[in-house]
């Protein structure tokens, strides 16, 4: 816009408000006479007065007598709105929580495993569960009697399966029977330590220099004549669930009852030195995602007493198995026992 035209806008405003002096009115008239766009947009002085008289007429015709609510009502209204917002928030949270529960209940997969080579991943809230299809490990302990009735139609049988890692036979014989809490008497082999310990450590000090992870490994030449049996060196306590065997209680979803799911789910949970479960692996699937997922979810929710070596907590693995059996196919009623 031409600076002169911008100035004329201010002059027109002054004329409209009745604040223009005679000099300003003359200046406006001179510009309007020479500037056709300004004349078209603003009009002459009479046009300005006509437009502004319309505003005055509208003002004078105003008959609205408002009754403004008192400030006391304002306070009450504010308090009410605060309560309304608070109650709405609570109701929204309840509805969201219910919806989340329904979604989670419906999201548990119930598809039967068709291909054993497929390694599925179950989405369990807050944890990562992998179902590994491994070769079933031999059961070293027979199935225990039914221990707990989960509902009217499904019985959970708690079978403790000791899925020990494979170790040389001679070492296993030297260790004695496996148990949840065991004291292992290890043998020290000069030859074994010479191959695994750093060479700059004297032989008589290498025992202490050995890392804890290697401490439970069996000596390679345990049966040889130069192996020296010594006093108990490593007192090992394996991982146990905090709260006993009942600490892990899988709760299969309703669809498992409906489809008559049954089978044995073996699993192992890696537990860190603080007793927190890190990773759940299905080592033997029952064939139902619902059962396997329930077992892993329960295992990941439990807390554990960590594995200790000479009283020092170390990461460990907890292995267990659950057998789900439909009661309708049982011969008699299942009585919870352990």
């Amino acid at each position: 816009m031409n600076p002169t035209c911008a100035r004329v806008e201010s002059l027109a405003g002054a004329i409209a408000l009745g604040e223009a002096s005679d000099a300003e009115r003359d200046e406006y008239r001179r510009h309007i006479a020479a500037c056709a766009p300004c004349l078209r947009a603003l009009g002459g002085e009479r046009e300005i007065e006509r437009v502004m008289s319309a505003v005055a007429d509208a003002r004078d015709a105003e008959t609205w007598e408002p009754i403004v609510p008192s400030a006391r009502d304002r306070r009450t209204r504010l308090a009410r709105s605060a309560w309304r917002v608070g109650l709405s928030g609570v109701a929204l949270a309840i509805v969201a929580s219910l919806g989340l529960h329904v979604l989670l209940a419906a999201a548990v997969p119930t598809v039967r495993i068709a291909d054993a080579s497929v390694v599925p991943v179950l989405p369990v809230s807050g944890m990562h569960v992998t179902l590994d299809q491994r070769t079933p490990a031999p059961k070293s302990v027979a199935a225990a009697p039914p221990v707990r009735a989960v509902s009217e139609s499904l019985v959970v049988v708690h079978n403790v399966i000791a899925l020990k890692a494979s170790t040389p036979a001679n070492v296993k014989a030297a260790r004695g029977p496996a148990s949840a809490t065991e004291t292992r008497i290890s043998t020290r082999s000069v030859v074994a330590m010479a191959t695994s310990a750093p060479s700059n450590v004297p032989i008589w000090r290498r025992d202490a220099a050995m890392p804890v992870a290697n401490a439970t490994h069996a000596p390679l030449f345990a049966g040889r004549a130069e192996s020296i049996a010594v006093a108990p060196v490593y007192v090992v306590h394996d991982v146990t669930p905090l709260g006993g065997d009942g600490a892990i209680s899988p709760r299969p979803p309703l669809i498992a009852y409906a489809e008559g799911a049954e089978g044995t789910t073996a699993f192992e949970v890696t537990v860190d030195e603080h007793g927190a479960p890190q990773h759940c692996t299905i080592t033997k699937s029952s064939g139902y995602f619902s059962l396997d997922g329930a077992v892993c979810a329960a295992a990941m929710h439990a807390r554990y007493v960590p594995r200790t070596v000479n009283g020092r907590a170390t990461p460990g693995v907890y292995r267990d198995a659950f057998t789900f059996r439909s009661q309708s196919q049982d011969d008699g009623p299942a009585i919870p026992q352990r």
């Binding site: 002054a14 947009a41 603003l42 502004m52």
Partner: peptide, 14 residues
């Protein structure tokens, strides 16, 4: 600025 705004408002009203 107020006068300019009044002028522009007046143009719209016109």
């Amino acid at each position: 600025a107020v006068r300019q705004r009044v002028c522009r408002a007046m143009k719209t009203l016109r």
